[in-house]
């Protein structure tokens, strides 16, 4: 669990700090933070500044909806259309509880939709559960090293 990587796409510095702290409390330290949608795609698809070398895929992506440049839904749509990332676990972590957002997220292939609680104790609990579920309990399909489509290599 220690080595398993999480990509956090979040533009609000406070939220990043709080999330990182919550993960730290449950011994998860390997978190990469990107500030906007374009950066998230660049990282996951090995484009732009991440072109060389292509980094390994994280074990899950925590995606905010309200991101600058490309919003979370647009990022999700692109991820699902790419062979490399189409099976990657993507969890929407956002403030919105709009029916429309929830529906669209699932329609675009989100694996989960979590609303950030205002209460930090509850937020910590949520983050802990997320880490536990997606990094420990959940089984991912066996990766084929030749194709490596959509899920991270087992570590």
């Amino acid at each position: 669990m220690k080595h398993k990587q999480i990509l956090l796409a979040e533009d609000n510095e406070d939220d990043v700090k709080l999330t990182l702290r919550a993960f730290k409390k449950c011994q998860i330290h390997n978190i990469i933070v990107v500030q906007n949608g374009v950066e998230a795609l660049d990282y996951l698809l090995g484009r732009g500044s991440y072109q060389n070398p292509t980094p390994p895929l994280p074990h899950m992506v925590l995606l905010d909806l309200n991101l600058p440049k490309l919003n979370g839904l647009e990022v999700l749509k692109t991820l699902r259309s790419c062979k490399r990332t189409c099976l990657l676990p993507v969890i929407i972590l956002t403030s919105s509880r709009e029916e429309k957002d929830i529906l669209q997220s699932y329609q675009l292939g989100a694996n989960s939709y979590i609303r950030k609680p205002v209460d930090f104790s509850k937020f910590k609990e949520v983050v802990q559960q997320l880490g536990h579920y997606w990094l420990v309990l959940n089984e991912l399909p066996n990766p084929n090293p030749k194709e490596n489509h959509g899920f991270p290599a087992k570590s």
Binding site: N12, D14, D15, L18, L65, N66, T94, S95, S96, R97, E98, K116, V118, D119, F120, S121, F123
Partner: peptide
């Protein structure tokens, strides 16, 4: 729903 809640989370979280 989105923008008004974000600063609240900071207030609550950092107080905690």
């Amino acid at each position: 729903s989105h923008d008004l809640r974000t600063p609240l989370r900071s207030m609550e979280g950092f107080s905690q």
